[in-house]
């Protein structure tokens, strides 16, 4: 049902308008001397709150080992299809047995990424994290596709509670071997 918005009649000063303009100018004049609300960006930076979703990165475990096993769940879940993984098998390394699989190439197209964090949420190996970095710039489109080396460089090392592959190794050494 249509309804009529009742407007209250204008007062004399409102109809003359000039006093209203003067009142407005008082406000703008006060703003003129008020301190700035903006931040002068490259020198001043905002404090990043915990849980911030910045640039997605790949992390290593505290022993510096690759955590990603290229299960491609992040590639699957990524809404803008920014992630592209080429899976491959990895050689057995003494500190990293049973993993078998790892990414040969891992590209995140930051021109597509929407920072939704679903990749971090879905990762069964806790290998991908959206960390604090929020600025990205480059001269070409190719520069803004983070490859595996770049992703590990950005990601660094994060603590890990699980050490899933270590447990497998321990079981093998414990003597449950057939």
């Amino acid at each position: 049902m249509p309804y009529v918005v009742e407007r209250k009649p204008l007062t004399l000063s409102e109809r003359i308008y000039l006093p209203q303009i003067l009142a407005g100018m008082r406000v703008t004049l006060r703003r003129l001397f008020a301190p700035n609300v903006t931040m002068e960006y490259p020198e001043q930076r905002p404090a990043i709150p915990t849980g911030y979703r910045g640039v997605p990165t790949l992390v290593k475990d505290p022993h510096g080992r690759e955590k990603c096993v290229s299960c491609q769940l992040c590639e699957f879940v990524c809404p803008p299809k920014a992630i592209r993984i080429t899976p491959g098998s990895v050689e057995d390394q003494p500190d990293r047995t049973h993993v078998e699989k790892g990414p040969q190439a891992f590209d995140i197209d930051m021109l597509r990424c929407i920072y939704c964090g679903l990749c971090q949420e879905v990762c069964p190996e806790e290998a991908i994290f959206l960390q604090n970095q929020y600025t990205l710039s480059g001269y070409t489109r190719a520069e803004l596709v983070n490859d595996k080396a770049k992703l590990y460089e950005l990601g660094g090392t994060l603590p890990d509670q699980h050490f899933k592959w270590d447990k497998k190794k321990a079981a093998a050494e414990h003597g449950n071997t057939h």
Binding site: R31, L32, F33, A34, N36, E40
Partner: peptide, 13 residues
């Protein structure tokens, strides 16, 4: 500059 100050920002600097 005047625009910037009125809008609470530093303006060209």
């Amino acid at each position: 500059k005047v625009s910037a100050w009125m809008q609470g920002r530093p303006g060209p600097n």
